[in-house]
Design a binder for these strands. Sequence first.
DNA 1: CACGATGTTCATAATATTCTGAACAAAGAG
DNA 2: CTCTTTGTTCAGAATATTATGAACATCGTG
Lengths: 169, 169
Amino acid sequence: MSEQPIDRFVDTWGRMGPLWGVSASVARVHGLLMASERPNCLDEIGQRLSMSKGNVSMSLKELRGWGVIRQVPQRGDRREFYTCEPDVWKMLFSIMRERKKREFDSVMTGVREAVVEAEKSPEGVALERMKQLERMLGTFDLLADKLLAGESQARTLISFLTGSGKEGK
Amino acid sequence: MSEQPIDRFVDTWGRMGPLWGVSASVARVHGLLMASERPNCLDEIGQRLSMSKGNVSMSLKELRGWGVIRQVPQRGDRREFYTCEPDVWKMLFSIMRERKKREFDSVMTGVREAVVEAEKSPEGVALERMKQLERMLGTFDLLADKLLAGESQARTLISFLTGSGKEGK
DNA sequence: CACGATGTTCATAATATTCTGAACAAAGAG
DNA sequence: CTCTTTGTTCAGAATATTATGAACATCGTG
């Protein structure tokens, strides 16, 4: 059987899904598209991963929302074919941008509001620590916006950081 | 009612839980300990958050495992009291270290193995992309180990990054 | 030792999430 | 216009996760 390596990769990637904030199915579809040389259509994906058409359709929709896959029109074929974004770094940054927007930003707002409340009636509240936390989240926000703005700068920075460490050894 | 600000904070923090990779309950307990000036015991926590004793006990256990709370013996009281780690940065780094260990490392291994497999029978496999991915994960691993080794260095780096950006404006 | 207070564990109840499959839409071919 | 192929949606089934509460352990005290 020739599909063993792809299956293995799909499984691994699927397990990572929840870490990225998507279901295992979504991650598996993504994994298949990453590991496949050629674009796949909905039915192929469903067959390969033993998933219902509906689930595949929803998964593809979500992946489109994350901006990590592309539709590739196939001449003379009415079906939609999909490939993943070929640059893995671009992909990673799409995911991180999206996660930050969906999960981090609202929490930062919430903490900010909680601090405002706490300043009005601070009995028993560890106000200092909450402010510290607010400041930390703010710093993170700034840093994230800077790093996620364009992945090329971040890549340079990362290379620098990991590279300079090696030299110092 | 004086507990409104704390409740608000607890709710916000609870919503963040799944992002950190813990349940909302665990995050709520952590949130309460963060927001409370004084150490709390198991019963207080359960009462305040309307959680069963069992759930509080499990949540505290998990938080101990993450290294983000401390037991504070209270003289002349047999109950255990808990506070959170007072330094929010230290806390953040504990969480990130733990998440990396639990969720990232195994995936990197998996991808590595999948690449080895794929090299043996590469029909239809996007080998180049998978190797690219492997390399990226490796870079991340290196970077993470460097940044997470000690939080003071990372804090300096972060201050530098966010600070220098402001100057450039 | 017996008792009350504190804390833990775990079976299973409650809840939330995910997946399926059938109904439906759209669109090209005949 | 009708049939077939492709894709989408969503109610409800299947599954996974989380919380409860009762049983059990531990320990200090009288």
